[in-house]
Structures are given as structure tokens and as C-alpha cells.
Simulated assay, not measured.
Amino acid sequence: MRALMYRLLLGAAAIAATATATSAFAADAIVMTPEVAGPHISGYVEAYLGGLYLTVPGDHASATTAGGTGRVNFPIDSRWNVQTDAFVDSLWIQGQNLYGYGGAVHGYWRDPSSYALGGFATIEGYGGVNFGGQNLYNFTVGPEAQAYFGNVTLYGQVDYGQIRASGSSDHLDTWGGRGVVRYFARDNLRFDAELGYSTISLGGEHLNTVTGALQAMYRFSGTPLSVFGRYQLDHLSTSGVSENIHKYVIGLRASFGSDTLLDEDRNGATMDTYRPNIIQPFGGG
């Protein structure tokens, strides 16, 4: 009898020890399970400084330019997003200042492993000594899409817009489109190539702009700060007259809500809009 009771006590002790160990392991497993980050607000602010070089047949001029941008992406759920932008561009030429300022809103559906598809709208106002007190502005609307292929992002936009003066029913129609390739050599090293075209109807004539741009950006690992350099060429032509506007800038970006440039591109404020080199409503959409 004593032997039987001894074996029963040993069996009960073994069961209790096993249950205790299993519970402790399960508790540790729960604690150690990493949390999956859900959609969250992210974005960035950036500023640039540089110069313009304008060439026309038989003449040329130079200018200083500066500006900034702020973008914030608001995820509605795991796929739908709304992004808002604000921007300002300014240039100084021969002692005169011209500037443009405005904003944009993007609404789109995004699968970070595949593509993004949506639309956008922009509005921009203009000011400076050459506008004679007129309150000029333009707006654009259109579709946009991105496709993701590993470390490459393809980005395209098409837009229609109008240039107007406050208090007037007259307007000029604008059309445009642009394509961008973003290549991530590393998660924090990004290279961009851009090609675009826009046209403005001027009565029976058109002002056409062909744009090409190259950009490099590097984000310092473990920080929100990035540095970038950009070159953009706008070739304007109308009625046999053409003009080339070269823009060279360097800038600084501070991001929030993202870990790398690639993460920002696929999960954050990834949309943007065309910014012409010259600050006047006839420079592009």
C-alpha cells in the first residue's frame, strides 16, 4: 500500500511540474511574440537651395532658387490612403523675386508588394514683381499609378488643368504627363530618373515643355535625415522660339513614421507632383 501511494504521489508531482513548465513556456512565448506594425501616419519635410541657368538663342541669365515641401500620408485602412502635400518654390533673378505656393491631395489604393492606383488634384498660386498685382493660379487633376518590382518603383501621372485669374471667367487649358523610375541601390540609397511633357493652349498656339530630371538621395541609417541632389532641365518651345532652363539643387529631408527610404516609398508618403523650374503659370502644370 505504501509503495502504491508513493508511486501515486510521484505521478502527481510529475504532472504538476509538467503543467507548470508548460504554462511558463506558453507565457514566455506570448511575451516574446513580436507585434506586427499596422498602418500609421508618416511623412516628411524637406528644403532645398540651388540655382537656375536660363538660355535662349543669343542670350542667357542665372538665378538663385530655394523652396520646400511637406507631405503626410494618412492610411484609412490596410490598403486605402490619403496623402496631403504643401509646397513653396521661390527664385531671385536680377534683383526680382518670383514665387509659387500650393498644395495637393492624393487618394489611392496600395499593395506594398505590388502596385498603387489612385488620383490627385493640385492647386498653385503665383506672386512676385512680374505679375502686376494679378491673382493668378492654376489647378490640375488626374490619375496616377505606381508599380513595384523588388528594388525598383515605376511611377506615372497624367493631368488636365486650367490657369486662371481671380475674378475672371477666362482660362487657359493645360495637359501633361510624367514618368519616374526610382531605383534603390540599398534601402537608404535612392536614384530617380524622370521624363515629362506638358502643353498650355495660348489661343491658337501652344507652349510646350519637355522635362528631364535626375536625382540621388541618401538617408543616414538609424536617423530620420536624408540628403539629396537634383538636376532638372525644362525645354520650353512655342512658335519656333525655344528656351532651356537648367536647375541644380541640394537639399535636406527629415522623415517620420518610416525606417528607410524604401520603407517610405512602399508604405509612406510615396506620391508627388511635377514642379516646373520657372516660377510662372506658363512654365508647366
Rank of each mutant, 00 (worst) to 15 (best):
L233D: 06
Y197F: 12
L236P: 00
N277E: 06
T174L: 14
A24Q: 11
L91N: 14
Y160R: 08
G268P: 09
D59A: 12
Y218T: 04
A63K: 00
Q146L: 14
W175G: 04
V241D: 10
S62P: 01
H206I: 02
T22D: 10
P143R: 10
N135C: 07
R253A: 11
S114W: 02
L214F: 12
L9D: 15
Y53P: 01
T223F: 02
N81V: 00
H206Y: 11
Y53K: 07
T209N: 11
T140L: 07
F184M: 13
I163Q: 08
Q94K: 13
A19I: 02
L49M: 11
F25R: 13
R275A: 10
G268Y: 02
Q96L: 07
T273R: 13
L252H: 03
L91C: 02
G133K: 03
A66M: 10
Q157C: 03
N244V: 09
Q83P: 01
L214Y: 05
R182D: 14
D89P: 02
G257C: 09
D111C: 04
G229N: 03
S201G: 12
N244Q: 10
N267T: 10
H60R: 01
G176H: 05
R164I: 05
T20N: 11
D187H: 10
A3F: 09
G142F: 09
L117Y: 08
K247V: 00
R275Y: 09
F74H: 08
F282N: 01
S255K: 02
A145C: 01
A116F: 05
P143F: 06
A47M: 12
T260S: 14
N81C: 04
A16D: 14
Y99L: 06
L207T: 07
I41Y: 04
L117N: 07
I200H: 00
A165F: 04
G132A: 13
A26F: 08
H171R: 11
P143E: 14
N208C: 05
L214R: 00
L117G: 04
I123T: 11
L9E: 15
L9S: 12
V36M: 08
P34R: 06
L136M: 15
R253W: 07
D263M: 03
A14M: 12
A104V: 04
E264F: 00
F139W: 15
G103T: 00
G268E: 02
D234I: 01
P276N: 10
E194C: 01
S221V: 10
L52V: 01
L98R: 15
S113W: 11
A14G: 01
V31E: 07
N73V: 04
E46L: 06
Y137T: 13
G133Y: 08
R253P: 02
D187I: 02
P39G: 06
Q215D: 06
N267H: 13
E264A: 15
N277P: 02
R7D: 06
F184W: 05
H40E: 09
D173Y: 08
N138T: 08
V181D: 00
L225R: 04
